[in-house]
Design a protein around this nucleic acid. Structure first.
Length: 639
DNA sequence: AGCACGCCGACT
DNA sequence: GTCGGCGTGCTC
């Protein structure tokens, strides 16, 4: 009797045995999906292993879904690695690798392959260099800020790989990056491009997957999941903006696409190129240690805009300091558009009662409600809305003070100060669709906006290139986020602005913390000094990348139960020779009616952390009722 | 993750 | 007497 080991999409660290019925023997193959009975349900699972020996009391496979294995040996290996590294089941990893429900039937269609062709009017100056790089067999970190140069390098890289009859995967952080990139590449690359991301319909995803599998295309562009592209022979993976936080998946499996890509490259033997404007500290360190080959294509430092840091403690006006106001006027007089950045939507951060000192909070989240001019009070975490009260709901106090500045307030203040100009606010409340953004951009390019006020939505090359002044209203909103990477993210954001703006431009940063080294190194243009100092601090405090972190997040509606679970986890850890932080309430201690506690295990060796997890903790977590446990290996955010 | 089993309190 | 809470344990 034949049986198979099957990986199911369940959070169970276990494979299940099933009997192969007579009529299906011969059709079973490793990597195919099958339908199996599981308790009262029917589930789709992957055949992971064929077993000859006899097992009693096994249930039978209901049917075989695919005519051929959609997941080959290499992707199966990658799935096993993801499961091991990120502490999930093989089934969960494999279902993430193949995010498609349709069956794969025998390929009867004729191959409709169109030969890719190139015309490269761009200079070939990097061609030899790129070819030589790819031969080195190392991960390559390319520090390039400028779009044109980046496209040029992409084309050189892609051409080199396609000539060897191999395929290229190009990974971007978000769907919105795809169309402009595709357009730019297709000016020179005449072949078919497969586009793959989570917003495609199931049918579209299935079709794209087929095109890649059959080798009808040589180039795939997409978000995270395109890293699992089933190309016959991958020759190169390019990752755009490697430092982008979107590359870490929030749900299980909580993988980082950079790490998965590097692992895949190791398994299938092909090179990896990471592009960045301002690298993550992890990549910078690996570059310095020689793990990555790091190459800078940056323009001359002299061509970067000047940076001025304004100490708000010394200013009377805390939105428009005198240096900022003066410079804005100068720019407007010269008819040059200005961008004001603030990472906070709404009018005011929260409402504070002057009499009892209470802040009006969201009933679902332990967070102050943001005051908006039109919609009144809104929770930026769960979307809860209510009308702003006239008096304090607790003490009936009449003085509700609006604390903290948001983009709406900056807009209102700007309108008072600068008349007769086009002022446009750009945040998630004002721009709610790609079309709205497109319209904004068109109007901006036509010169209809003199002053743009907005959040991260504005930090785009096409906008930054066209402004000569960027004013950061209050960098402290980002600098003081309760996350140890806050400083790094601020530095990356400001560096990106600096590198994308024209050389004759200016950046004015307003802050209550002008001594912060992320700001001082930025001002002096000492990029390397920033990374070195950040590394020193991380080492001193036992933070990544010096130590590996594994975060255990405990969530539940019942506060006592979550606390109890946290305490029991702590008890189990105390006997182990491993360093850990917590348990403590998360910085955002309650979100969407759920109380949140966390612990962080840390060690130089991830293997050691995983051993403790598997031997001591997983068995404990199973017994928690009404408390959800999330294990996040190499977490990017710990809020 | 689901789902069943089982053991205690407050209801028709 | 039974309905339903959630602690416990299992799923090929």
């Amino acid at each position: 009797m034949n049986c198979v080991k099957v990986a199911l999409n369940l959070p169970l660290d276990k494979l299940f045995y099933y009997k192969v019925p007579e009529e299906l023997t011969g059709q079973v193959k490793i990597g195919k999906r099958i339908l199996v009975p599981f308790q009262k349900k029917k589930l789709i699972g992957f055949v992971v292993e064929e077993v000859k020996e006899n097992h009693k009391n096994l249930r039978e496979i209901i049917k075989i879904i695919d005519d051929f294995p959609p997941i080959g040996n290499d992707l199966l290996l990658l799935g096993r690695w993801i499961a091991e590294y990120y502490c999930c089941s093989i089934g969960q990893a494999l279902h993430s690798i193949l995010p498609i429900q349709y069956p794969f039937k025998a390929d009867k269609d004729k191959l409709n392959r169109k030969k890719s062709s190139f015309s490269l009017p761009v200079s070939h100056k990097y061609r030899g260099e790129m070819d030589a790089l790819l031969k080195e067999g190392k991960v390559i970190l390319l520090r390039v800020e400028n779009w044109e140069k980046r496209i040029d390098l992409y084309l050189q890289l892609i051409k080199g790989v396609l000539e060897k009859n191999r395929q290229v995967i190009l990974i971007v952080p978000e769907v919105s990056y795809i169309p402009p990139l595709q357009k730019a590449l297709q000016n020179f690359y005449k072949g078919e491009v497969s586009v793959f991301h989570s917003k495609l319909s199931p049918k579209q995803r299935y079709n794209q997957w087929w095109r890649m599998k059959r080798g009808e295309v040589d180039l795939a562009i997409g978000t995270r999941s395109v890293v699992f592209s089933p190309f016959p022979k991958v020759g190169l993976i390019i990752i755009e903006e490697e430092e982008n936080l979107a590359y870490k998946q929030i749900e299980v499996p909580r993988y980082h696409v950079r790490e998965v890509a590097i692992k895949r490259a190791e398994i299938e033997q092909f090179p990896i190129v990471l592009f960045t404007q301002s690298p993550s500290l992890e990549s910078w360190e690996r570059g310095k240690e020689g793990v990555y080959k790091s190459i800078s294509f940056s323009k001359d430092v002299k061509n970067f805009p000047q940076v001025e840091v304004v100490d708000l403690r010394k200013e009377r006006d805390r939105i428009f300091s005198s240096p900022l106001t003066k410079t804005i006027r100068q720019e407007l007089e010269k008819n040059r558009p200005v961008l004001l950045f603030l990472s906070r939507r709404g009018y005011a951060n929260f409402l504070l009662c002057r009499e009892c000192g209470e802040v009006i909070r969201c009933p679902n989240c332990n967070i102050g409600l943001t005051f908006h001019l039109r919609d009144d009070l809104i929770c930026h975490y769960c979307g809860y809305r209510q009308k702003a009260p006239q008096v304090c709901p607790l003490c009936r106090g009449k003085e509700l003070h609006r604390v903290g500045v948001g983009t709406e307030q900056v807009e209102a203040e700007a309108k008072k100060r600068f008349s007769g100009i086009g002022i446009r606010r750009v945040d998630l409340d004002a721009i709610n669709s790609p079309l709205a953004y497109k319209q904004l951009l068109n109007n901006f390019k036509k010169g209809k906006s003199d002053l743009l006020i907005g959040t991260q939505l504005l930090i785009k090359e096409e906008i930054l290139q066209r402004v000569s002044l960027v004013g950061i209203i209050l960098i402290d909103t980002l600098l003081n986020l309760p996350d140890f990477r806050a400083g790094e993210h601020v530095f990356q954001l400001l560096m990106k602005i600096k590198k994308l703006m024209r050389g004759d431009g200016k950046i004015i940063i307003q802050t209550y913390n002008p001594e912060h080294f992320a700001l001082s190194t930025l001002k002096k243009g000492k990029e390397e000094a920033y990374y070195e100092e950040e590394m020193r601090i991380r080492e001193e405090l036992g933070y990544p990348p010096y130590l590996h972190w594994v975060r255990i997040l405990l969530e539940g509606r019942n506060k006592d139960k979550v606390e109890e679970a946290a305490r029991r986890t702590e008890e189990k850890l105390k006997g182990e020779k491993i360093s850990f932080l917590g348990p403590s309430p998360c910085p955002f201690s309650r979100i969407k009616e759920k109380y949140r506690y966390h612990l962080v295990l840390r060690d130089e060796s991830l293997v050691r952390i995983r051993e403790v997890l598997k031997k001591r903790l997983i068995s404990l977590f199973v017994h928690f009722s009404n408390v959800k446990v999330a294990i996040d290996v190499d977490p990017l955010r710990t809020m």
